[in-house]
Design a binder for these strands. Structure first.
Lengths: 336, 336
DNA sequence: GTGAAAGCGCTAACAT
DNA sequence: ATGTTAGCGCTTTCAC
């Protein structure tokens, strides 16, 4: 069943059918109705390969997810997928490890799948104009943004939270409650990722309140995963580190930390308060429920697609920063 | 940069270039080498739309995920994606709600995206040959299988665990430990899903050991989500239900149940043991760690793709059943 | 072993 | 408002 068959069935030329298919105005109402009807009843679906061929682009948007098993991405991906589908595009997703280069992957996909645009979910914060030059289609960074001045403001689109400020806020909340020995659980302090940014928020909060930055209280792990976080905290506690509160840069890592604290005989929050950023649903059900700054996951996804579609229409770059919402659980208590 | 340009650059016809591109044998070694070199250096990538157009199919495989926010799917999706990409195909994923029909969605995608095959992740257990007739490409059901005799054995491919038997095993383990009042937490008892199957395993285990099936001990919820599970268990406890063990058909639901038990003043496992099926990583870190039958998620995904690829080569249908592994946590204790 | 040419199904001038 | 026609970039006969 091709456009030709429909044309024949309707006694019109294929151009008229094509016009109807593409919602062009220059078709008589009668023909439009008739052709629509035939298309419906014959169950005809246009051949996208042919369409893409002449348009030289596919109606597809690529999604590159970096740092695969992060449960934080699940809801975002879902929101992105439905927004892309709703807009009449096809989502092509590719997942890569934290050590792979998302820009290279995106460039490959762009050419291979003939994409119209790209969304990067999780990625580096220090792209250079040179690196980005391999990308010939609009792209949007979701859940992170360029943060090290390696890119001019107007060369970049993103939807994210203000990582450093939110981390600052989290740590300040702990300070306000009387905590003075506040540990930080980060993946790295220097990887130019969300981890580093949130770590900087931690450092700035300590400074703002005249607290010393004690290396003993900075716990680093190899990844954002729960297992390594658990091990890192357990090790540091084994070394005798002592603190009354822990700020984890991600909910998942906080869960690992809570197990380590528990196994070390420390009660949360009586002996050690725990606070994090992300807002995974599951952390509301564990005991004690985690106090955390909730990211608006669905909104992050939705907005990213919206922004990308605008960029594809030729609109200028734009950086959106979304607010988090503090969800108070029982993992934090006051020392006042 | 098209095949034409390459041909010109090499001083050969486009057919020769096409032959090289498609690894055809009838090209002189010298030409092959020369053309390959030019392709490399000019960074040429064939236009897939054009290829697909003449082949009348795209090198794409569809993935329909039903019951979106189920965290159990995350690892499976990842495994599926990398296997599809590794095989040189493009994965096109679409997520649908538990109330949508995955077969219809798959049929739409198949035609719309010109897919070569489909993988269904999470779906119904009672397809009829008639329903399946809308599918014109091979498909594989991942994590579930046809279980109600609505389909002949050889009309169906799947990779899954033996839901009913595994549930039986879980409940039997509780019985063995001395539990006699064992509650079941299910989504529905009659929805022809994994929930119903695992419920049947529960029923059979009770029967096998001469325990009565007490309606008070069967707790149903509207979905597989954590929130509704929490509420359902809380409500039933509020109504005065009493049991010494709870079998949840999914880890996530077990987590909701554990919060409800806790808030009702019941200790896990001293007052009530909790056992589930799935094996989410996170349930190993909560307190108490969940005792659960772990599904081999990565393997489920990998095998599904493998099987689909074979089906696409014309090989016959095949049903694979993978074993689970019992992971003992502290959520279960003995009554003996 | 290589080239010429016919299409795959569609869109978009261009002509009427 | 509608039809005719030339490609889009590729694969695949069919000659040579």
């Amino acid at each position: 069943m091709t456009i030709k068959d429909i044309a024949k069935l309707c006694g019109v030329s294929i151009s008229t059918v094509s016009r109807v298919l593409n919602d062009r105005p220059d078709v008589s109402e009668e023909n439009r109705r008739r052709i629509m009807a035939v298309i419906q009843s014959s169950n005809y679906i246009p051949n996208n390969s042919a369409r893409d061929l002449v348009k030289t682009k596919a109606d597809a948007i690529g999604l590159v997810v970096r740092g695969v098993s992060n449960p934080f991405y699940t809801d975002i991906i879902q929101a992105i997928e439905s927004a892309i589908t709703a807009a009449g595009y096809t989502m092509v997703m590719q997942q890569i490890g934290s050590s792979d280069d998302e820009v290279k992957c995106g460039a490959m996909m762009e050419r291979d799948k003939r994409l119209q645009g790209l969304i990067f979910l999780g990625g580096r914060y220090d792209y250079t104009p040179g690196e980005l030059a391999v990308l010939n289609v609009p792209f949007v960074c979701c859940s992170y943004t360029n943060s090290y001045g390696t890119l001019p403001e107007d060369a970049y689109s993103s939807v994210s939270i203000a990582d450093q400020e939110e981390a600052f806020r989290a740590v300040e909340e702990l300070y306000r409650l009387g905590h003075r020995r506040i540990a930080a659980l980060v993946s790295r302090t220097d990887d130019r990722s969300v981890s580093q940014l949130r770590y900087q928020g931690y450092v700035r909060a300590l400074e703002a309140h005249g607290l010393p930055l004690d290396p003993e209280l900075v716990i680093t792990t190899e990844s954002f995963d729960i297992g390594p976080a658990y091990e890192a905290v357990a090790r540091r506690l084994g070394e005798g580190a002592s603190f009354t509160a822990l700020f984890a840069i991600a909910d998942h890592m906080a869960m690992g930390a809570m197990r380590a604290l528990r196994e070390a005989g420390l009660r949360v929050p009586e002996d050690c308060s725990v606070m994090a950023i992300d807002g995974l649903e599951v952390t509301e059900y564990i005991h004690p429920a985690l106090t955390t700054l909730c990211q608006p996951m669905a909104e992050l996804g939705r907005r990213s697609v919206e922004l990308l579609l605008q960029r594809m229409q030729g609109e200028p770059h734009c950086r959106q920063t979304l607010p988090t919402v503090l969800r108070r659980g029982a993992s934090v208590c006051s020392r006042n």
